[in-house]
Design a protein around this nucleic acid. Structure first.
Lengths: 177, 177
DNA sequence: TTAAAACATGTCAAACATAACATGTTTTAA
DNA sequence: TTAAAACATGTTATGTTTGACATGTTTTAA
């Protein structure tokens, strides 16, 4: 499937970027639905370059520091657009290590169970608050054709996901009392 | 982290099982939060056996078909229980290829976008209905100490997750019109 | 009786992902 | 001026996951 390939091509369709900049995207904004670290990104960029889906220019920062700025080619744009139109079967539900633990919860006494649940809830609440803070920066829904639309909807999705996670934990807590 | 190891140990704590039976668990019930296919399970069972966390007896089905029934040892039980008590940092949000696509939605015209969204929604509705059907088989909430409690809460979680997925898609559809 | 489905256990190659190793430059703020 | 943080690009080892290859037996239903 090579999702990383298309994630990179999509980002480069917006604007030319360096590997380092791409890496930051995956570790911050995009992280709500995709991530990759630099040890995956640099080799993938090389591959895309070999396939002539991207090209790069070398820039000099300061005196000698070289950085490669990648730009998507017409071929790259075309492959990206083809992928973008594809209907997809929904994947298997993603793995969830906490739910795996809770699946075996009957082996835990009430106190231990509530301890784990409270800890998870706290973390999800924290994440939700940070997402909400980011969301406040949108004064209104961006136009459905602006490139901020994508950011907006996935942010809304992340908020809904966290709210749902918390609601589930609350429900389990109520069963345990 | 070796989550599969603990998933298998947890299942074997309930009752002794063969690799084939474990495999079915991962491809049906457990699939809402964890999955693994037999090509992972058989090697893992061998490893657990080498580590003396499980033992097996060979049974004969029919005339000659050999099956290995695995049982967790005291050491296995102890390691499983240690793992079960562990507080865990919530992992990164799981990857979601459809949200990745929608992140780049501004490159698609309205019709193509709605086509993809409708298609995804349909699949999630289908999955939700099948989950709800399974849920109906629970006349009431199982006791929090029975081993059906785990099944019950993760099933509730799966239903909530699908409802949230559908709600998100509906919201995005409404923005696109 | 026979064909299909289910049972049953394994290996292997490729892809994907993570963390650590490796090396250096530039900017910022104390 | 100097130390820390951020910038910048790579490789390597390890572990996880998937899908295909491989081989056979037993049960069920047409």
């Amino acid at each position: 499937m090579r999702a990383l390939k298309y994630a990179i091509l999509g980002l480069l369709c917006r604007k030319s970027m360096t590997g380092y900049e791409l890496s930051k995207e995956f570790n911050y904004e995009l992280a709500e639905f995709w991530y990759a670290n630099h040890s995956q990104i640099y080799p993938e960029l090389k591959k895309l370059s070999d396939e002539e889906l991207v090209v790069f220019d070398v820039e000099i920062t300061g005196d000698i520091l070289e950085t490669k700025r990648y730009t998507v080619t017409d071929l790259g744009k075309s492959e990206f657009n083809q992928w973008l139109h594809k209907d997809e079967k929904i994947p298997r539900t993603p793995k969830d290590p906490f739910r795996l633990r809770m699946y075996f919860a009957h082996n835990l006494d009430c106190q231990a169970r509530l301890h784990l649940l409270d800890n998870q809830k706290m973390q999800h609440v924290k994440r939700l608050n940070s997402l909400k803070k980011t969301f406040e920066q949108y004064p209104s829904t961006p136009s459905k054709d602006s490139d901020r639309f994508g950011d907006f909807i996935v942010l809304r999705g992340a908020i809904m996901r966290e709210e749902q996670n918390i609601a589930w934990i609350d429900e389990v807590i109520s069963y345990c009392r």
